[in-house]
């Protein structure tokens, strides 16, 4: 029997809307970059592009985790608090003479535990991840404040500060470490997205949890791993951000709650779960950082920036939502 013939019902091959939602973020990113080059005199220099990349990379690293939480069908509102906890812990513990390795492992372990709990609770309680992570974020902020009380200021290891400085070179490559970490993490996850069974299960759970369960996907495990990844990514971002701020600062993570979600959504990962990926989020994080730079550069104040960013997200969500889905036939 001849089997692999034309499908009985195929959508148009070149659907503009479809293409838009598929590649839109990459096109946008390039356009905004070009606009920055044109409208910001003096932007086109190695130093300013590098500083843009550093800015984008911290957001990008945190957004990698958010992407996974969103693909599995949730949302992680505790990233900002996790970033704060991680960066304050680093400053405080380093000031007490802890080695970086120990500090890092401890922070990572805490992040994973918090993430696992977030995932399990969000799944088991059938409570929206929104509420669970909002609550756990509040707890984390409280813990951070307690930590911060004793040793105001704190110290950040020199090499961390170096890793986010524009003029740094890493192992001979003329690029700060944070940018390389961002690209490497994204690269590894893009590979895993395709090649790892766990990622297939994350996508399946986000797209259709009922069907995934019936296909013997263990949803609690999948949710726990996605949220653990989210918390771990936030913790790593927090460490680099510590290098940026140079000391303990509990509010350091604040902007990242909105920005990580923005980066994921602008990238084109669906808030409904099951669709998207970290590659798009890389472009999304770059686009948003670049846009902020551009707006700053042409003298738009922070207030107006906020308004414009919000508008951009609503517009893009609308645009992506318009993708003509081939309906599932009865």
């Amino acid at each position: 029997m001849a089997t692999l013939t034309q499908p009985t019902t195929a959508g148009p091959r070149w659907d503009l809307r479809r293409l838009g939602s598929q590649y839109g973020v990459y096109v946008f990113a390039v356009l905004v970059f070009l606009a920055t080059c044109i409208f910001m005199p003096g932007f086109l220099s190695v130093a300013s592009i590098k500083s843009l990349l550093v800015l984008a990379s911290i957001l990008g690293i945190a957004s990698i985790g958010q992407t996974l939480a969103i693909i599995v069908g949730g949302l992680d509102l505790s990233v900002a608090s996790m970033i704060g906890l991680s960066s304050v812990s680093l400053a405080v513990l380093s000031a007490r003479g802890w080695s970086f390795a120990t500090t890092f492992l401890l922070i990572l372990a805490v992040a994973v535990v918090v993430g696992v709990l977030n995932g399990l609770l969000a799944h088991r309680l059938q409570a929206p991840a929104l509420v669970v992570t909002l609550a756990s974020g509040s707890i984390l902020t409280g813990v951070t404040m307690m930590l911060n009380k004793g040793s105001a200021g704190g110290t950040i290891p020199e090499w961390i500060t170096e890793s986010v400085s524009v003029n740094a070179t890493t192992l001979g490559i003329p690029m700060p470490l944070v940018v390389l970490v961002w690209v490497a993490l994204t690269g590894v996850l893009v590979l895993l997205q395709r090649r790892s069974p766990s990622f297939r299960r994350i996508y399946a759970s986000g797209m259709n949890p009922t069907a995934a369960r019936l296909a013997l996907v263990r949803l609690p495990v999948v949710w726990a791993s996605a949220f653990a990844a989210s918390a771990a990514a936030a913790a790593i971002a927090g460490i680099f951000l510590g290098g940026f701020s140079g000391g303990a600062n509990i509010d350091v993570g604040q902007p990242y709650l909105f920005l990580t979600i923005a980066a994921v959504v602008v990238g084109g990962t669906s808030l409904l779960g099951g669709r998207g990926g970290v590659g798009r989020t890389l472009a999304g994080a770059f686009l948003i950082s670049n846009l902020t730079t551009l707006l700053l550069g042409v003298g738009v104040g922070t207030n107006v920036q906020q308004i414009l960013l919000g508008t951009l997200i609503v517009a893009l969500v609308y645009l992506y939502g318009r993708e003509a889905h081939v309906r599932t036939r009865i």
Binding site: P197, R201, N208, T210, A215, R275, H325, T328
Partner: peptide, 28 residues
């Protein structure tokens, strides 16, 4: 509701419960 992963490929839909058979050292 219980069967398909609408946006996934036919291949991904076919292989989901049997993924373990296709993975070697954690990679498919």
């Amino acid at each position: 509701r219980e069967g398909i992963f609408a946006a996934s490929s036919v291949e991904d839909n076919l292989t989901l419960p049997a993924l373990r058979r296709f993975s070697r050292m954690g990679l498919l």
